[in-house]
Design a protein around this nucleic acid. Structure first.
Lengths: 175, 175
DNA sequence: CAAAACCAACCAACTGGTCGGTATGGTAGC
DNA sequence: GCTACCATACCGACCAGTTGGTTGGTTTTG
Protein backbone atom coordinates (compact mmCIF):
# COMPACT_ATOMS: atom_id res chain seq x y z
CA UNK A 1 0.00 0.00 0.00
CA UNK A 2 1.45 3.30 -1.06
CA UNK A 3 0.83 6.50 0.78
CA UNK A 4 1.75 8.54 -2.26
CA UNK A 5 0.80 7.22 -5.67
CA UNK A 6 2.06 8.29 -9.05
CA UNK A 7 -0.99 10.37 -9.78
CA UNK A 8 -0.42 12.44 -6.67
CA UNK A 9 3.13 13.11 -7.83
CA UNK A 10 1.96 14.17 -11.27
CA UNK A 11 -0.49 16.62 -9.73
CA UNK A 12 2.27 17.95 -7.53
CA UNK A 13 4.48 18.49 -10.56
CA UNK A 14 1.71 20.39 -12.31
CA UNK A 15 1.29 22.51 -9.21
CA UNK A 16 5.00 23.33 -9.19
CA UNK A 17 4.80 24.53 -12.78
CA UNK A 18 1.73 26.60 -11.99
CA UNK A 19 3.41 28.28 -9.05
CA UNK A 20 6.98 28.68 -10.18
CA UNK A 21 7.13 28.17 -13.92
CA UNK A 22 8.29 25.34 -16.11
CA UNK A 23 11.95 26.07 -15.63
CA UNK A 24 11.67 25.50 -11.91
CA UNK A 25 10.22 22.06 -12.33
CA UNK A 26 13.00 20.22 -10.51
CA UNK A 27 12.95 16.90 -8.75
CA UNK A 28 13.59 18.64 -5.46
CA UNK A 29 10.65 20.96 -5.99
CA UNK A 30 8.29 18.14 -6.91
CA UNK A 31 9.42 16.06 -3.97
CA UNK A 32 8.88 18.96 -1.61
CA UNK A 33 5.47 19.69 -3.11
CA UNK A 34 4.13 16.22 -2.38
CA UNK A 35 5.90 15.81 0.95
CA UNK A 36 8.35 13.23 -0.26
CA UNK A 37 12.09 13.02 -0.19
CA UNK A 38 13.89 13.12 -3.50
CA UNK A 39 14.86 9.51 -2.98
CA UNK A 40 11.22 8.61 -2.49
CA UNK A 41 10.22 10.50 -5.59
CA UNK A 42 12.85 8.76 -7.66
CA UNK A 43 11.54 5.49 -6.41
CA UNK A 44 8.33 6.14 -8.32
CA UNK A 45 9.90 7.74 -11.39
CA UNK A 46 13.41 6.63 -12.08
CA UNK A 47 14.28 9.72 -14.12
CA UNK A 48 12.93 13.17 -14.66
CA UNK A 49 12.11 12.29 -18.25
CA UNK A 50 9.95 9.43 -17.02
CA UNK A 51 8.02 11.88 -14.87
CA UNK A 52 7.54 14.29 -17.78
CA UNK A 53 6.38 11.46 -19.99
CA UNK A 54 3.88 10.31 -17.41
CA UNK A 55 2.61 13.86 -17.04
CA UNK A 56 1.95 14.12 -20.75
CA UNK A 57 0.24 10.75 -20.88
CA UNK A 58 -1.97 11.70 -17.98
CA UNK A 59 -2.83 14.97 -19.68
CA UNK A 60 -3.76 13.21 -22.89
CA UNK A 61 -5.97 10.81 -20.97
CA UNK A 62 -7.74 13.71 -19.31
CA UNK A 63 -8.30 15.34 -22.65
CA UNK A 64 -9.72 12.22 -24.21
CA UNK A 65 -12.06 11.83 -21.26
CA UNK A 66 -13.37 15.34 -21.77
CA UNK A 67 -13.63 14.69 -25.47
CA UNK A 68 -15.95 11.76 -24.79
CA UNK A 69 -18.14 13.89 -22.56
CA UNK A 70 -18.41 16.52 -25.27
CA UNK A 71 -19.22 14.09 -28.03
CA UNK A 72 -22.23 12.26 -26.64
CA UNK A 73 -24.78 13.97 -28.83
CA UNK A 74 -25.11 13.70 -32.60
CA UNK A 75 -22.61 16.48 -33.24
CA UNK A 76 -19.65 16.07 -35.53
CA UNK A 77 -16.15 15.20 -34.45
CA UNK A 78 -15.17 18.78 -35.20
CA UNK A 79 -17.80 20.25 -32.91
CA UNK A 80 -16.86 17.83 -30.15
CA UNK A 81 -13.19 18.69 -30.44
CA UNK A 82 -13.88 22.40 -30.36
CA UNK A 83 -16.09 22.05 -27.32
CA UNK A 84 -13.48 19.86 -25.72
CA UNK A 85 -10.78 22.47 -26.17
CA UNK A 86 -12.90 25.15 -24.54
CA UNK A 87 -13.76 22.82 -21.69
CA UNK A 88 -10.06 22.17 -21.24
CA UNK A 89 -9.52 25.88 -20.92
CA UNK A 90 -12.07 26.38 -18.21
CA UNK A 91 -10.44 24.14 -15.66
CA UNK A 92 -6.89 24.69 -16.73
CA UNK A 93 -5.50 21.35 -15.77
CA UNK A 94 -2.36 19.48 -16.53
CA UNK A 95 -2.08 19.55 -20.27
CA UNK A 96 -1.15 23.18 -20.74
CA UNK A 97 1.46 23.12 -17.99
CA UNK A 98 2.88 19.81 -19.03
CA UNK A 99 3.13 20.97 -22.61
CA UNK A 100 5.33 23.88 -21.73
CA UNK A 101 7.55 21.90 -19.43
CA UNK A 102 7.95 19.13 -21.96
CA UNK A 103 8.73 21.33 -24.91
CA UNK A 104 11.32 23.18 -22.86
CA UNK A 105 12.94 20.05 -21.53
CA UNK A 106 12.95 17.87 -24.60
CA UNK A 107 10.73 18.54 -27.60
CA UNK A 108 10.83 14.89 -28.62
CA UNK A 109 8.58 14.21 -25.65
CA UNK A 110 5.80 15.85 -27.64
CA UNK A 111 5.83 13.04 -30.18
CA UNK A 112 2.70 11.38 -28.74
CA UNK A 113 0.86 14.69 -28.78
CA UNK A 114 1.94 15.29 -32.34
CA UNK A 115 0.58 11.90 -33.36
CA UNK A 116 -2.70 12.48 -31.54
CA UNK A 117 -3.07 15.89 -33.10
CA UNK A 118 -2.50 14.48 -36.58
CA UNK A 119 -5.09 11.78 -35.94
CA UNK A 120 -7.67 14.32 -34.84
CA UNK A 121 -7.05 16.43 -37.93
CA UNK A 122 -7.51 13.42 -40.17
CA UNK A 123 -10.74 12.39 -38.46
CA UNK A 124 -12.14 15.87 -38.66
CA UNK A 125 -11.24 16.20 -42.33
CA UNK A 126 -12.60 12.82 -43.32
CA UNK A 127 -15.93 13.56 -41.74
CA UNK A 128 -16.47 16.99 -43.19
CA UNK A 129 -17.74 18.06 -46.58
CA UNK A 130 -15.41 21.04 -46.49
CA UNK A 131 -12.18 19.73 -44.97
CA UNK A 132 -10.33 23.00 -45.27
CA UNK A 133 -12.94 24.99 -43.43
CA UNK A 134 -13.12 22.27 -40.81
CA UNK A 135 -9.37 22.43 -40.33
CA UNK A 136 -9.57 26.18 -40.16
CA UNK A 137 -12.12 26.09 -37.38
CA UNK A 138 -10.10 23.50 -35.52
CA UNK A 139 -7.04 25.70 -35.86
CA UNK A 140 -8.95 28.65 -34.51
CA UNK A 141 -9.91 26.69 -31.42
CA UNK A 142 -6.34 25.62 -30.95
CA UNK A 143 -5.16 29.17 -31.44
CA UNK A 144 -7.34 30.36 -28.61
CA UNK A 145 -6.32 27.43 -26.46
CA UNK A 146 -2.59 27.84 -26.99
CA UNK A 147 -2.93 31.58 -26.57
CA UNK A 148 -4.21 30.91 -23.11
CA UNK A 149 -1.57 28.29 -22.42
CA UNK A 150 1.17 30.79 -23.18
CA UNK A 151 -0.59 33.41 -21.13
CA UNK A 152 -0.90 35.66 -24.16
CA UNK A 153 -4.66 35.84 -23.83
CA UNK A 154 -6.47 36.82 -20.69
CA UNK A 155 -8.47 34.09 -18.96
CA UNK A 156 -11.57 36.12 -18.27
CA UNK A 157 -11.81 37.84 -21.62
CA UNK A 158 -15.47 37.94 -22.67
CA UNK A 159 -14.35 37.72 -26.28
CA UNK A 160 -13.49 34.10 -25.62
CA UNK A 161 -17.11 33.25 -24.89
CA UNK A 162 -18.31 35.02 -28.00
CA UNK A 163 -15.69 33.26 -30.03
CA UNK A 164 -16.80 29.91 -28.71
CA UNK A 165 -20.39 30.56 -29.66
CA UNK A 166 -19.43 31.71 -33.11
CA UNK A 167 -17.11 28.75 -33.60
CA UNK A 168 -19.71 26.23 -32.54
CA UNK A 169 -22.31 27.88 -34.75
CA UNK A 170 -20.02 27.60 -37.73
CA UNK A 171 -19.35 23.97 -36.89
CA UNK A 172 -23.06 23.18 -36.92
CA UNK A 173 -23.47 25.04 -40.18
CA UNK A 174 -20.78 22.84 -41.67
CA UNK A 175 -22.51 19.58 -40.79
CA UNK B 1 33.69 49.40 -32.06
CA UNK B 2 32.64 46.02 -30.80
CA UNK B 3 33.59 42.83 -32.51
CA UNK B 4 30.50 41.14 -31.20
CA UNK B 5 27.36 43.21 -30.89
CA UNK B 6 24.20 42.48 -29.01
CA UNK B 7 22.36 41.39 -32.08
CA UNK B 8 24.95 38.73 -32.80
CA UNK B 9 24.50 37.40 -29.29
CA UNK B 10 20.75 37.29 -29.66
CA UNK B 11 21.06 35.32 -32.88
CA UNK B 12 23.45 32.95 -31.16
CA UNK B 13 20.97 32.42 -28.36
CA UNK B 14 18.25 31.62 -30.87
CA UNK B 15 20.59 29.17 -32.53
CA UNK B 16 21.25 27.43 -29.23
CA UNK B 17 17.53 26.99 -28.66
CA UNK B 18 17.09 25.64 -32.18
CA UNK B 19 19.88 23.12 -31.75
CA UNK B 20 19.51 22.01 -28.16
CA UNK B 21 16.11 23.10 -26.90
CA UNK B 22 14.96 25.88 -24.66
CA UNK B 23 16.05 24.18 -21.50
CA UNK B 24 19.66 24.16 -22.65
CA UNK B 25 19.71 27.88 -23.23
CA UNK B 26 22.51 28.61 -20.78
CA UNK B 27 24.95 31.47 -20.64
CA UNK B 28 27.81 29.06 -21.28
CA UNK B 29 26.10 27.69 -24.37
CA UNK B 30 25.34 31.14 -25.76
CA UNK B 31 28.88 32.32 -25.09
CA UNK B 32 30.32 29.30 -26.84
CA UNK B 33 27.94 29.72 -29.76
CA UNK B 34 29.12 33.24 -30.52
CA UNK B 35 32.77 32.61 -29.71
CA UNK B 36 32.79 34.64 -26.56
CA UNK B 37 33.75 33.90 -23.01
CA UNK B 38 30.99 33.91 -20.46
CA UNK B 39 32.54 37.00 -18.94
CA UNK B 40 32.40 38.72 -22.30
CA UNK B 41 28.80 37.72 -22.78
CA UNK B 42 27.86 39.07 -19.37
CA UNK B 43 29.53 42.29 -20.28
CA UNK B 44 26.82 42.83 -22.88
CA UNK B 45 23.90 41.43 -20.90
CA UNK B 46 24.31 41.70 -17.20
CA UNK B 47 21.84 38.92 -16.45
CA UNK B 48 20.21 36.06 -18.26
CA UNK B 49 16.85 37.75 -17.88
CA UNK B 50 18.20 40.79 -19.68
CA UNK B 51 19.22 38.58 -22.56
CA UNK B 52 15.81 36.92 -22.68
CA UNK B 53 14.10 40.27 -22.63
CA UNK B 54 16.26 41.55 -25.46
CA UNK B 55 15.52 38.42 -27.46
CA UNK B 56 11.80 38.99 -27.13
CA UNK B 57 12.08 42.64 -28.04
CA UNK B 58 14.15 41.79 -31.08
CA UNK B 59 11.60 39.18 -32.09
CA UNK B 60 8.77 41.66 -31.79
CA UNK B 61 10.69 44.14 -33.91
CA UNK B 62 11.24 41.53 -36.58
CA UNK B 63 7.58 40.69 -36.57
CA UNK B 64 6.54 44.30 -36.93
CA UNK B 65 8.95 44.70 -39.83
CA UNK B 66 7.40 41.74 -41.61
CA UNK B 67 3.97 43.10 -40.80
CA UNK B 68 4.81 46.32 -42.62
CA UNK B 69 5.99 44.41 -45.66
CA UNK B 70 2.76 42.46 -45.74
CA UNK B 71 0.55 45.48 -45.35
CA UNK B 72 1.67 47.68 -48.22
CA UNK B 73 -1.36 47.06 -50.41
CA UNK B 74 -4.93 48.13 -49.69
CA UNK B 75 -5.66 44.98 -47.66
CA UNK B 76 -7.11 45.09 -44.20
CA UNK B 77 -5.14 44.88 -40.99
CA UNK B 78 -6.49 41.38 -40.54
CA UNK B 79 -5.21 40.18 -43.90
CA UNK B 80 -1.85 41.74 -43.27
CA UNK B 81 -1.55 40.09 -39.88
CA UNK B 82 -2.50 36.71 -41.25
CA UNK B 83 0.01 37.02 -44.07
CA UNK B 84 2.59 38.17 -41.58
CA UNK B 85 2.13 35.13 -39.42
CA UNK B 86 2.57 32.79 -42.34
CA UNK B 87 5.65 34.68 -43.46
CA UNK B 88 6.99 34.31 -39.94
CA UNK B 89 6.54 30.58 -40.22
CA UNK B 90 8.44 30.22 -43.45
CA UNK B 91 11.73 31.50 -42.16
CA UNK B 92 11.31 30.35 -38.61
CA UNK B 93 13.21 33.09 -36.91
CA UNK B 94 13.62 34.18 -33.37
CA UNK B 95 10.13 34.76 -32.14
CA UNK B 96 8.97 31.16 -31.84
CA UNK B 97 12.11 29.99 -30.07
CA UNK B 98 12.29 33.00 -27.84
CA UNK B 99 8.70 32.52 -26.86
CA UNK B 100 9.30 29.04 -25.57
CA UNK B 101 12.45 29.93 -23.72
CA UNK B 102 10.84 32.95 -22.13
CA UNK B 103 7.68 31.21 -21.02
CA UNK B 104 9.74 28.42 -19.51
CA UNK B 105 12.08 30.76 -17.72
CA UNK B 106 9.69 33.37 -16.45
CA UNK B 107 6.20 33.84 -17.84
CA UNK B 108 6.15 37.47 -16.81
CA UNK B 109 8.63 38.13 -19.60
CA UNK B 110 5.74 37.62 -21.99
CA UNK B 111 4.03 40.76 -20.78
CA UNK B 112 5.12 42.86 -23.80
CA UNK B 113 3.91 40.17 -26.17
CA UNK B 114 0.61 40.00 -24.35
CA UNK B 115 0.18 43.74 -24.74
CA UNK B 116 1.07 43.67 -28.41
CA UNK B 117 -1.29 40.78 -29.02
CA UNK B 118 -4.12 42.64 -27.34
CA UNK B 119 -3.43 45.72 -29.42
CA UNK B 120 -3.52 43.73 -32.64
CA UNK B 121 -6.81 42.14 -31.67
CA UNK B 122 -8.31 45.52 -30.96
CA UNK B 123 -7.15 46.99 -34.25
CA UNK B 124 -8.44 44.04 -36.20
CA UNK B 125 -11.80 44.18 -34.48
CA UNK B 126 -12.21 47.91 -34.87
CA UNK B 127 -11.60 47.74 -38.58
CA UNK B 128 -13.90 44.88 -39.38
CA UNK B 129 -17.62 44.83 -39.90
CA UNK B 130 -17.78 41.40 -38.29
CA UNK B 131 -15.35 41.58 -35.37
CA UNK B 132 -16.02 38.06 -34.16
CA UNK B 133 -15.30 36.47 -37.49
CA UNK B 134 -12.19 38.60 -37.81
CA UNK B 135 -11.00 37.45 -34.42
CA UNK B 136 -11.78 33.90 -35.37
CA UNK B 137 -9.65 34.10 -38.50
CA UNK B 138 -6.85 35.71 -36.57
CA UNK B 139 -7.06 32.94 -33.98
CA UNK B 140 -6.88 30.34 -36.71
CA UNK B 141 -3.68 31.85 -38.04
CA UNK B 142 -2.24 31.92 -34.57
CA UNK B 143 -3.31 28.33 -34.00
CA UNK B 144 -1.38 27.22 -37.03
CA UNK B 145 1.57 29.35 -36.05
CA UNK B 146 1.75 28.16 -32.46
CA UNK B 147 1.15 24.60 -33.59
CA UNK B 148 4.34 24.89 -35.56
CA UNK B 149 6.16 26.61 -32.74
CA UNK B 150 5.42 23.73 -30.43
CA UNK B 151 6.35 21.24 -33.11
CA UNK B 152 2.88 19.76 -33.03
CA UNK B 153 2.35 20.43 -36.72
CA UNK B 154 4.75 19.31 -39.44
CA UNK B 155 6.61 22.09 -41.24
CA UNK B 156 6.14 20.77 -44.76
CA UNK B 157 2.50 19.84 -44.45
CA UNK B 158 0.72 20.83 -47.67
CA UNK B 159 -2.40 21.45 -45.65
CA UNK B 160 -0.74 24.56 -44.32
CA UNK B 161 -0.58 26.09 -47.79
CA UNK B 162 -4.19 25.29 -48.46
CA UNK B 163 -5.17 26.72 -45.10
CA UNK B 164 -3.33 29.92 -45.87
CA UNK B 165 -5.15 30.36 -49.17
CA UNK B 166 -8.47 29.70 -47.57
CA UNK B 167 -7.76 32.03 -44.69
CA UNK B 168 -6.70 34.86 -46.95
CA UNK B 169 -9.73 34.34 -49.15
CA UNK B 170 -12.01 34.61 -46.16
CA UNK B 171 -10.19 37.74 -45.06
CA UNK B 172 -10.83 39.39 -48.40
CA UNK B 173 -14.43 38.32 -48.30
CA UNK B 174 -14.78 40.05 -44.98
CA UNK B 175 -13.53 43.38 -46.24
C1' DC C 1 45.75 57.53 -21.43
C1' DA C 2 41.02 56.18 -20.46
C1' DA C 3 37.18 53.72 -21.45
C1' DA C 4 35.13 49.87 -23.44
C1' DA C 5 35.51 45.02 -24.69
C1' DC C 6 36.94 40.94 -23.28
C1' DC C 7 39.00 36.82 -20.80
C1' DA C 8 40.06 33.07 -17.38
C1' DA C 9 39.55 31.51 -12.98
C1' DC C 10 36.60 31.05 -9.58
C1' DC C 11 32.31 30.48 -6.53
C1' DA C 12 28.02 29.23 -4.24
C1' DA C 13 23.83 27.33 -5.23
C1' DC C 14 21.48 24.02 -7.58
C1' DT C 15 20.74 19.89 -10.58
C1' DG C 16 19.64 15.01 -11.62
C1' DG C 17 20.85 10.90 -9.94
C1' DT C 18 23.12 7.10 -6.76
C1' DC C 19 23.48 4.42 -2.65
C1' DG C 20 23.12 2.18 1.70
C1' DG C 21 19.91 1.79 4.93
C1' DT C 22 15.17 1.69 7.47
C1' DA C 23 10.12 0.99 8.16
C1' DT C 24 6.19 -1.66 7.03
C1' DG C 25 3.39 -5.15 5.73
C1' DG C 26 2.56 -9.56 3.66
C1' DT C 27 3.46 -14.66 3.49
C1' DA C 28 5.22 -19.23 4.13
C1' DG C 29 6.71 -22.77 7.31
C1' DC C 30 6.59 -24.51 11.68
C1' DG D 1 1.24 -17.67 17.34
C1' DC D 2 5.96 -16.91 16.10
C1' DT D 3 9.83 -16.58 13.18
C1' DA D 4 12.31 -16.00 8.93
C1' DC D 5 12.01 -14.02 4.75
C1' DC D 6 11.06 -10.75 1.16
C1' DA D 7 9.23 -6.89 -1.57
C1' DT D 8 7.80 -2.24 -1.65
C1' DA D 9 7.96 2.48 -0.12
C1' DC D 10 10.73 5.68 1.50
C1' DC D 11 14.66 8.41 3.61
C1' DG D 12 18.83 11.31 3.85
C1' DA D 13 23.47 11.77 2.87
C1' DC D 14 26.24 12.16 -0.83
C1' DC D 15 28.23 13.07 -5.65
C1' DA D 16 29.67 14.93 -10.00
C1' DG D 17 28.37 18.07 -13.19
C1' DT D 18 25.98 22.43 -14.30
C1' DT D 19 24.21 26.99 -13.45
C1' DG D 20 24.18 32.10 -13.17
C1' DG D 21 27.07 35.35 -11.68
C1' DT D 22 31.61 37.79 -9.68
C1' DT D 23 36.20 39.47 -9.76
C1' DG D 24 40.57 41.02 -11.15
C1' DG D 25 43.28 41.43 -14.79
C1' DT D 26 44.45 42.00 -20.07
C1' DT D 27 43.74 43.59 -24.66
C1' DT D 28 41.71 46.70 -27.98
C1' DT D 29 40.21 51.10 -29.54
C1' DG D 30 39.21 55.99 -29.84
Amino acid sequence: MSRVDKDTIIRAAEEVIREKGARKLTLDAVAAQCGLSKGGLLHHFRTKQALLKAMLESAIEQEEAIRLECGEGPGSELAARVQCMFALMENDEGLPRSLIAAVAEDPSLLEPIKAKEARVRREVCDQSGDPELALLLLSAARGIFLGRVLGVMEPGDPAIDRLRERLLAMCKELD
